[in-house]
Design a protein around this nucleic acid. Structure first.
Lengths: 266, 266
DNA sequence: CGCAACGCATTGTCTGGTCAATGCAATCCG
DNA sequence: CGGATTGCATTGACCAGACAATGCGTTGCG
């Protein structure tokens, strides 16, 4: 049996101590210097780099973060409910995905930055919207925040010819919701197709969402169709994994007996 | 303006070259020695550690992997469709989540290792199943594979008193499906509540699923209820982010006009 | 020919340092 | 008192090496 590298043992020791409550969420783990002393006696570790390598493992796993010049601390963040099914709910109309989140987490004030533009969208979007070569789209990009910290990105794309001159292009809140605007235009959204891709964020996404190390994201592609089966809108949501739990429900037969759920996070 | 650290510049350069096609998926990127020579001239980098730090960034982002003694290579893996909604579909009964996956990716042979045991489940499970203190549960753990490489983990928990002595406890394939077994016991599953938690995998999960560095996972908690609103089964699915796309659909009103989708991955 | 042994390029682990950057706390000064 | 300065512990970046482990290809031997 080959012994694990020292830096792995350090990571394993700390990970176990974090999960068994020795270092609860929010608490400080030993500093590099303290660990160097400890593992110097135990395993003959003499270099600070080796200690750093071990701590780096946990940082990349999203378990701890470095707060200079204090030390390393165990991470914990509360998760908000992300409920993609709520988008096609009819009542009440002002409860969209975002407000749905917010109601679960009151005490914090939501806000969003909205930016509307005309774009030549990516292949991925063109394909789902069924755009002709050269055809343009309207893009409605939103950064949704809670107490001014970004919680997710939400970019909606619609065939330009469909919404030019309508409220969809208004770069601000639309009280009745943009989905209502599309309904008024004769394209009520009745069917949604949802895809979730899991990956690590790109550096620009790290900056825009102020992500820590080791935080994965879900790229949620939502394609919505009108009653005639035409793709009307494609929305790209970028959801930081450490701040959300994605929730939805499935039914068979009557919609009765959906129980209330009193659980916390795992 | 403060210049970015050298190792970040190296990572950024390589990342750009990967995304713009200079290094397509599967191709080799320069070795540490080659990069050391290049950035030695450009930025005066003299230590191999600094090069390794830059490459390490991309490894942790899941973009490249090291294949000793060849060098570093750009990663790409095909994603299978993970369709949690299919579980409550009634016809055909033998199409469960897994076979549903497989049909999208023929040419590969599916298999699963099944293990049944009686356990005292975690708080998270107890809470969702509504277990009394001290009450035990039956656990049916499956490792699902394609061509003998693991694709996901699937652990189902049911109140022990409900299934003791039934086919649910059979440690092998149950042709009609375990959900049908629960149906025969008078607990037809009609409602499902689904939670997805995104995170980096624990080391044991890395080993069991043979995950590469920088691959996030989704922990999918599925709680299913019978027609009387009782929680019957909790299933914990562990889904490697690099091998799956999670898909589901939403409807409003009639189920008509669900279009066929001809898209590839983004 | 077939197989074992060896060489070799490459990445993995670790040493033992140096200097910079950060942010908090104590201190100093008007 | 109150604001600016300084000190200090800590992490961040980087250096210049050493030796181990891995797996592929070649070489050599029976």
């Amino acid at each position: 049996m080959k012994p694990a590298p020292v830096y792995q043992q350090i990571a394993d020791d700390l990970r176990r101590q974090i999960s068994d409550g020795t270092f609860p969420p929010g608490s400080q783990v030993p500093t590099e210097a303290e660990l160097l002393e400890k593992y110097g006696e135990l395993h003959g570790v003499r270099s600070r780099q080796t200690i750093r390598q071990g701590l780096g493992v946990l940082v990349h796993e999203g378990l701890i973060e470095a707060r200079r010049p204090k030390g390393y601390f165990v991470i914990q963040r509360k998760r908000l409910v992300y409920r993609p099914q709520a988008e096609l709910r009819q009542k009440p109309p002002e409860i969209d995905v975002f407000t749905n989140l917010v109601q679960e987490e009151d005490g914090r004030t939501p806000s969003q930055d909205i930016e509307v533009s005309i774009v030549n969208p990516s292949h991925m979007i063109r394909e789902r919207l069924g755009l002709e070569p050269g055809e343009l789209a309207a893009a409605r990009r939103r950064v949704r925040k809670l107490d001014d910290v970004p919680y997710n990105l939400n970019d909606s794309y619609v065939r330009l010819s469909l919404v030019q001159g309508t409220d969809f292009m208004h770069p601000g809140d639309v009280a009745r919701g943009t989905n209502a605007v599309l309904g008024e235009l004769g394209h009520e959204l009745v069917y949604g197709f949802h895809e979730f891709y899991l990956r690590m964020p790109m550096p620009d996404e790290v900056q825009r969402l102020q992500l820590g190390a080791g935080v994965p994201v879900a790229e949620h592609l939502s394609t919505t169709f009108d009653s005639e089966g035409n793709a009307v809108q494609v929305t790209v949501n970028l959801i930081p994994g450490d701040r959300h739990v994605i929730v939805f429900e499935t039914h068979r037969g009557a919609e009765a007996n959906a129980p209330r759920i009193p659980w916390g996070n795992p």
